[in-house]
Amino acid sequence: MDNATDILRRTLIAAAAAFVANGALAQGFTGKLTATGGVSTVEGAGGGGLTPWALITGYGTDRQIGGNAHYTAVRTNDYALATGGVALGLFDRVELSAAKQRFDTRDVLIPISPALKGYKLEQDTFGLKVRLVGDAIYDQDRPLPQIAFGLQHKRNRDDTVIPFLNSALGGGIRTRGTDFYLSATKLYLEPGILANGTLRFTKANQYGLLGFGGPDGDRYRPEFEFSLAYLVRPDLAVGVEGRTKRGRLANPALNLREQMAYDVFLAWFPSKHTSLTLAYVDLGQIVGALTNDRRQRGWYASLQAGF
């Protein structure tokens, strides 16, 4: 639990700092409508749980700064993931985010070496998002969605698994990579539906947890992601998300095949300062040969605090 408590502690410190900053910057109150700040993705950007949205995180309007801190825990059949991060939304135009992921391999790597029991892969992600056109909330009379461009620079801090993969596969896997994406988000307020589509260009293997690129090369490939949510009440959303993952690493002995990830979520916004998201996730196979070739399914819980 060291893993989780450490990230949780850092997140709480960041949340406290965010509240102090809120008092100084936001001049009393922040103005977006409840839930329109979205929640935090596992990579730190504002959006759903798995995929970024074009919405700028937090509750700051065009003249305000919004921000939040989040802590997310995921547990699947064979792995556990803890993510903590902070994000700032500047004038409903620019979003900056930083997140730390700790991916606990639990017992998966024991067949490779008993010393790797409980080995954790760590990755830092720094994100930038800029709203280009449209307003998902106010443009109820126009078909144009809100569109944003974003990038996520990832630094994998692993010094064990990626070198092992490089020696097994013949090299080429890097520990750093940058994803670029375009997100389009539209809120259909009358039926209460939020729809998002994201086109991501990436070199990442398993979100970057297994590095970037590989022996087959270092080219960007497109991936498609979507979210579809229904607003049951102004403070309650249910929905589904999906994200294609077509990492090119291949090794018959390890089965490094990637599969599309999905989740079904429930997000509750008791106030503009907190949100709680619970989801059932299916991340597809992750190093199938060591995990009975089963899809990694399990629970996802995320707490966000901010303004």
Partner: peptide, 17 residues
């Protein structure tokens, strides 16, 4: 009801501009 509330808010939202 929620749907009726959303309908009115949705039709007023573009006035923001």
């Amino acid at each position: 009801p929620q749907w009726a509330q959303r309908r009115l808010v949705a039709r007023l939202a573009p006035m923001q501009r």
